[in-house]
Design a protein around this nucleic acid. Structure first.
Lengths: 217, 217
DNA sequence: GCGCGGGGTATACAATCGTCTACCGGCACA
DNA sequence: TGTGCCGGTAGACGATTGTATACCCCGCGC
């Protein structure tokens, strides 16, 4: 698996790897590959299991860190408070994801490639992992902050959108080191815009005074 | 180019195509390839130029269609009116993109694959095209609707985010035909949430009454 | 009338590929 | 004490690949 990652980091595609190639890199006989994996998909899934678990676990853990925990408040009805928490949480989570991708540069790039890649198996595995992260995020958010009137079903939709958008932000972050601060800012802002929209959309009375009504899509 | 597209639609990756393979499919001699393209990147860019122009042009054209034009109002200061327009425009544009990807299924899938693919050249070409679409969208939006207080710089940020998110929505749309109505709804809702957030964030007086203030990121 | 170059072809080359069959050492376990 | 099997090896197979060299024909411009 290490050999495959090293090769993919330069060749930059798992599917395009030859099994002889990785065997050579690993200093093993080509046939030995079959002793461990039946497919290249098999290898890919195994790698994703490792790295994916690390990312997902890391995200959860860091969401529970002091910095985040400091914002844990019990049920609060003040929307402004909720928004302030959302901001802090967004900043924490964005920083965390971007740190992770910097720490696992090659693995991350290779992984993202598989997200729209050739193998249906890998595509599904990647999607499932992103979905899992979105689920985690929803759960954590529900526990940590109360966005007034925003329920689970709505929150997970938002979480999915955030996770997917972070794929792009992360790629930019890796590929344009000079713009990293700016990108981080944009990502945070994007998330807040969504929360802001979600809160406002569910507070009809709040904006009704101005003649505004969120369209019922 | 047709041969390459046909092959990529089944093999589903441009980079993984062999030049002998496409030559065979095209009924030509392998070496003939070199008479037209020096690289596979070269071929890819040529294909993207064709299809990309069609998508981009189609989008602009359909944004100017009667259905969209009906919503063209001159400078209006009523935010509610702006939001209603935004909704109609979002619906029109989403429908348009999703129609296009349905009409160019294979080409679209192949293209998206290159967005995070192996070749730096193709990646850049794809990014540039998406950026172009975002620019178009910004321009059109500025012409058609006035979101109070939302300026060009802010709008293009939103446009970029929308375009990228539509990449995912489109893939879902293609791969889960049974959920198409739902996906279309989600996409529209996502866009509205953004606009909603943008409007609200720029109307401090509007929500200040409720003690809300959009954080200054 | 001639040259030349653009599009197309034929053949050949060395590499690499995935897979098949067969062999082997060691460890677990009966 | 023996027997399986797990991880690793060796060699060979036919297929396919990218590219190099060389030949070809048609049409256009001088």
């Amino acid at each position: 698996m290490n050999a495959a990652l090293e090769l993919a980091a330069t060749t930059r595609s798992l599917a395009s790897l030859g099994l002889r190639e990785v065997a050579r890199q690993a200093g093993l006989n080509p046939n030995t590959f079959y002793r461990h994996f039946k497919d290249f998909d098999d290898l890919g899934v195994a790698m994703l299991d490792e790295l994916g678990a690390e990312l997902r676990g890391g995200l959860r853990e860091r969401r529970m860190r002091p910095a985040a925990k400091g914002f844990r408040l019990s049920d609060l009805s003040d929307p402004a408070e909720g928004l302030a928490q959302a901001q802090a949480l967004a900043r924490e989570s964005v920083g965390l994801v971007l740190d992770f991708v910097m720490d696992h540069r090659e693995a991350y790039i290779v992984g993202i490639r598989e997200l729209h890649g050739t193998s249906p198996v890998m595509r599904k595995a990647m999607r499932d992992m992103l979905e899992g992260i979105a689920q985690d995020m929803t759960e954590d958010l529900l526990g940590v902050l109360k966005l007034p009137g925003v329920e689970h079903d709505e929150l997970i939709e938002i979480a999915r959108v955030i996770v997917r958008q972070m794929v792009f932000f992360s790629m930019d972050y890796l590929e344009e080191p000079s713009r990293q601060k700016q990108i981080k800012r944009d990502a945070e802002r994007f998330i807040l815009l969504l929360f802001w929209g979600a809160i406002a959309a569910r507070q009809p009375g709040l904006l009704a005074q101005a003649g505004l009504k969120f369209p019922d899509v």
